[in-house]
Structures are given as C-alpha cells and as structure tokens.
Nucleic acid binder design. Structure first.
Length: 600
RNA sequence: GCCCUCGUAGCUCAGUUGGCAGAGCACGCCCUUGGUAAGGGCGAGGUCAUGGGUUCAAGUCCCAUCGAGGGCUCCA
C-alpha cells in the first residue's frame, strides 16, 4: 500500500532518474561496462553493473562529480515505446538487457525474473547520451535532481537476479532527496543509528564478546549480558507458567537417526554443523529442539483429556550460518531459544495459536515495541519436495487455518510467499535493526509434518487414534537476537528490571565510604543489583562513569546524607531526588522491578 | 559461501614517498577530599591479526590464511 504511493511519488522519480544518471557517469568512465538494473529503493537507489575492473570508494567521488555535470546539463528524459526487435538492436552489446527484453517478450517477466500478470510494453528512456530499457517513471529533466541532495553511499556485490548461482555484479548504492537538508538529515540519522548499534553498545556496556579463538558467531556473555538473559528467562518462565506450559530439558546432541526422522537432515542439513562419529554412530548438535520435544510428547499414550500439551525449554541450539551471514548478536551460530511446542487437536488450533499471539502482544507491550510487522509466511509451489515438505494439500489447509485465526483475532498481518518453515506456514514478527536491516524476531509456526514422521497421536473422545497438530513458537526469539534487538531498542538504557546494574552508590569523599558500603549492602540484601564506587576519583568522574554505563539510579552520598541517614538520588535521565530515606528509595526500586516498569 | 573494504595497546584512533611504534581513555601507584557527566603527576602496557614473500630496511609493498565491516544469498 505504502509502496504503491512511494512508486508514484516525486522522490521515487528523482531516485530512479538519479540511478540513470549514475549509470551514464559509470559508462562515461568505463565504456565496456555492462549495465543491468537500477531501481529506486528505500532512501535511495542502486544500479548493478558488470564492470571491467573493481572500483573503489574514491571512484565514487569521481562518479558523483560527473553526475553533477550531467545534471547541470538539463537533459530531458524521453520515453519511447518500441518493439522487441528494435530493443534488441539498441542493446545488441548489452547481454543483460537482452535477457531482460527476452523476459518481457516471452513470459512477461519483470526485471527480477518474476512473472507479471500482464505482458508489458517495452519502453526505453533516453537522456543525454544514455539510453536504458526502462518502464519509468522519471523526472522531466536531469535538472530536477538536486545536485546537493544526493550522495553515492557504498559499493556492494549483488548476484544477477538475486540468485547465488548467477554472476556477482557490482552494485553502487546512492541516496537521493528533494532538498539538501533532507540529505543532511538522513546522513545524521545514520550517524545516530550507528551509536545505538548493538555491536558498539554491547562492547561499551560489557554485555557480550566475540573472541577469535572461540569462533565467529559464538558469543560469550559477559556478566552484564548474563543478567539480561536471566531476567528474560525469568519473564518467560513466569508468563509460560501462567499460560499452562510445562518445562522440559533436552540434550545438545542427538544421534543422526532423530534428525533423519524429523526431516532436518533432508531439508535443513546445510545449516547444521557436520556430525561427529563415535563407535560407528553419528551425532549432531541440535539446530532445533523440536524433535526432542516430540519424543517427550510421544513417550507414552496420550488422551485428548490432557491436550493441549505445551512443552517449553530455553534450548541451546547450533546452526552453521554461512560466514557472511553472521551479524553481531542478531545472527549467530549458537543460540538459546525461547522455545516451546504445543500439541493440540485440530479444533483447539485456533485458540492455541491465538494464545501465542496474545503472548507476543503482552511482551511487545511490556518492551514498548511498536515498529514491527506480523508476516504470514507461506510456502512456494516450486519448493515442494526441496525446501518444503511435499504435501500441497496440507500446506494449503494449514495456511488457511492460520489466515483464518489471524483474521478472526483481528490481528493485522501481511502475506509473503516462499518464507515458510520446511514443515509448515508461520507467523513471523519482523523487526529492524538500528542500521535498518530486517530480522525475524519472534515466530509462531504450524507443523503438519510431525504426525507422519514421529507417529504422534492421542486417543480422542471416540477412542480412536488422532494425530495432533504442533505449534512451534518463540515469542522472545533467541536470547541473542532478542538482546541484540533490545540493546538497540533501548539504546543501552535498559529499564530497571533488565539493567545489569540497577544502582550505583557514589560517595562524595572517601569520608562517606563506610556509609556508602553500608547502603550498598542493604540494597544488595534487598535483592537489588548494586555496586559502590569507592575509588579515588572525584564524584564528578564517578557520576560520568555511571552515566556512560547507563545505570538507572545513582545514589550520591555526602556528609549531609551520612549524618541524617538519608540518600540523594540522581537518575539516569539527570533528574534528582535529594534527601530521601533509604526505605523510600528501596520501595521505588522494588516497585519498578516488580512491575517491570519502563519508568525510572 | 560470494563481491568490495578493513585488522596498530583492553577501548577509540594517529603513524608522511618503506627508515628507531605514538596519543587520548581505561589500568597501577602517588598527590588531591571534591555536591551531580572527565582534578593533577608518574608508571606499566605492542611479535603492528597470523604465516610467507619483495627489500640493505616492512606497521607501510605483494600473496595466502584467520577475523571484522558494507552488501548479495540465506535465516531466530
């Protein structure tokens, strides 16, 4: 919807036109270049080229400069609708364009190779010396691109048509705006985003660590990060207990047989660490917990009376993500999942599925997460038997069930093809990292492959065997991705209940060290995470340190406080509350913790 | 995995055309006893990611490996 609007906007035309101007500039410098596609995207545009030689960041400046020259020429963008034959002649030495023309002519494929509903006309856009196969739209003249409101941002590799079996092209990203101020604002926003990047804050706040000798994608949790993970785990246990879950524990390793039965080895093998072999038996570290939970469900005959059965575990899983896919805490190779599997009868499905959605909503409200999209991830016919379990009837049936449940529950969602799990459709909750990369945070999945593979069943009211449905869910994602996200969401300033250090006691002179130690130990007794800064620094420096570590409460103690047995409070936001009793302060802290409140 | 870029002290970064490895912060010791975001002095800290190569001489140039970053592909 919003996309349609963008495609009709002036900004879209400016960016699209800037892409053409950039392509012209690149061709001016490197005439042998083969050019492919160059669409507008969020915040800008890109163009993919096959260049005769790699280019560098300095080349971008050169290209930018040339672009400004072209812009100042005031060249008009002229559209012509032409025949396929004419197009082939114009682009005779541009193989990628020829492939695009063929797609347009034959199947009616768009520039990404996806089928189009209607066979499109073939059009070209021309300005100055540059002609591109293009459906538009563009601005009328190059002069409508503000030469001070665009910037070439980066060089990247990109596969032709997004297929890793194809050739790697060189992509140049640019950003373009109507006015120079908007560009300035956008660049400033990027700088701000970098400051809240969880990789930077994670280091500064001593939350986690990657060590070369441990390995890529294998985070070490520092004491501060462990506090956060533990608090999330407490939250999950509390909420899941209320929602009727039972906790289980399962090993990290399993024999090959289990993953053959589960279908992971046929469908998921490339994301699994290779097996270790002992006494002729292969063992795998688990990429998911489900097969073991299925075993627990299947451990004895089940009656409809005990359904739904909800088995929960913060399970540790290992997935071999390709090296280039790793991304701080957001994409790692070892992870602890807020996992659970719900086994239910078909008529219980909607209630159970929506129960999970309710859980999400509660969590998101608690964290104040507002920018997210629920995505119904569907299978793709072409992937059946390869990426997806080969049973189209059940795919369509379960996709309908999920769609209906969401519609009945009045929960907004979007539908996307070819994003399902191999065993069924799912609702993914999509979020964005500080630098704008999209991730699936939480997920709620249907599994219809379970019954076939694990022979799971329960005895129904009529005394007959019936196959349960299984819901896989992880509302709190994995510790890694959740904490990575929360670091950015809070910009490191965690609410009191999550803050690794909740209170720092700061004596004004070392004459108050004893009093400070006493106050700290009383707070600690009361279950508050507190430290006392008894070092030789001046109070100002100590406050600065505490501020930088984003400690929610600083208790500042001078001679006055010690004498009248009170405390003075400085909060992370800079506000103060002086000369209150320790009891009053403690009540405040305990209240924030107990309510998991966001305010200080 | 692929394309491009980058690896200098715990952290952030300087380091000229190849010519004796530097700063600030953090750390240790000393002085300072200061009322809400950095008081001062001294000191310690480096196989310049790792391994090869070119050169009289390599942090600097070349190759490989490992790791990180921006993308692509893939995903919680």
């Amino acid at each position: 919807m919003a996309e349609e609007k963008y495609a009709e906007s002036k900004l879209y035309r400016i960016r699209h036109s800037a892409a053409h101007v950039m392509a012209q500039a690149v061709l001016d410098f490197y005439p042998e270049t083969q050019y492919t596609i160059g669409p507008p995207v969020e915040n800008g545009f890109y163009y993919d080229f096959e260049l005769p030689a790699p280019i560098t960041a300095e080349d971008l400046e050169k290209i930018e400069k040339r672009m400004r020259q072209i812009i100042s020429g005031g060249h008009l963008f002229e559209k012509k609708v032409i025949s396929g034959e004419a197009a082939r002649q114009i682009f005779a030495n541009q193989p990628y364009k020829l492939e695009l023309i063929e797609g347009l002519e034959k199947g009616g494929l768009d520039e990404y190779g996806n089928p189009l509903d209607v066979k499109p006309e073939i059009s070209i856009y021309q300005h100055d010396t540059f002609t591109d196969l293009c459906r538009g739209p563009h601005v009328e003249s190059t002069r409508q691109i503000n030469p001070s409101a665009f910037k070439l941002m980066s060089i990247a590799g990109a596969y032709w048509r997004g297929d890793e079996n194809n050739k790697m092209l060189t992509r140049i990203y640019g950003t373009a705006w109507e006015k120079p101020d908007e560009l300035k604002q956008y660049l400033a926003m990027l700088e701000e985003a970098k400051k809240r990047d969880h990789r930077k804050l994670g280091k500064e706040l001593d939350i986690f660590l990657f060590d070369d000798e441990v390995g890529p994608g294998l985070p070490l949790w520092m004491p501060n990060g462990t506090v956060i993970a533990d608090e999330l785990e407490n939250l999950a246990k509390e909420m899941e207990e209320k929602a009727g879950y039972q906790r289980v524990r399962t090993p990290h390793l399993t024999k090959e047989d289990l993953f053959i039965r589960s279908g992971h080895l046929p469908y998921y093998a490339e994301s699994m660490y290779p097996p270790m072999e002992l006494e002729g038996v292969k063992y795998y570290v688990k990429p998911m917990n489900c097969p073991m939970h299925h075993k627990i469900f299947g451990a004895r005959p089940r009656s409809y009376r005990e359904l739904p059965i909800r088995l929960a575990e913060y399970g540790t899983c290992y997935r071999y993500e390709k090296s280039g896919e790793l991304f701080g805490l957001m994409r790692v190779r070892s992870m602890q999942m807020n996992d659970a599997h719900i086994y239910c009868a078909e008529e219980q499905f909607e209630q159970e599925f929506m129960g999970v959605i309710d859980l999400y909503k509660k969590y998101f409200e608690l964290f104040g997460i507002e920018k997210f999209v629920m995505r119904l991830s569907l299978h793709a016919k072409a992937g059946l038997g390869k990426k997806y379990v080969d049973n189209e009837r059940l795919w369509i049936k379960t996709e309908d069930m999920v769609r209906r449940a969401m519609l009945n529950g009045g929960v907004p969602f979007v539908e996307v093809q070819n994003e399902a799990a191999f065993y069924g459709p799912k609702i993914d909750v999509q979020i964005w990292s500080a630098i704008g990369r999209e991730f699936t945070l939480a997920t709620n999945q249907v599994d219809f492959a379970v019954p076939e593979r694990f022979d799971l069943k329960f005895v129904n009211r009529e005394g007959a065997d019936e196959i349960p449905l299984c819901i896989h869910r992880a509302p709190l994602s994995t510790h890694e991705r959740m904490i990575g996200f929360l670091i950015e969401h809070y910009a490191g300033a965690f609410p009191v209940w999550l803050a690794p250090e909740q209170v720092r006691v700061i004596p004004i002179t070392d004459g108050q060290n004893d009093y400070a130690a006493k106050i700290a130990s009383q707070l600690r007794e009361a279950g508050v995470r507190v430290s006392a800064d008894l070092g030789a620094e001046r109070m100002n420096a100590k406050i600065r340190q505490a501020q930088l570590m984003k400690v929610p409460y600083m208790v500042v103690l001078g001679a006055n406080e010690a004498e009248s047995d009170v405390v003075s409070l400085r909060m992370r936001d800079g506000s103060q509350l002086n000369n209150i009793s320790l009891a009053e302060f403690m009540a405040r802290v305990k209240d924030r913790i107990d309510r998991r409140a966001s305010e200080l």
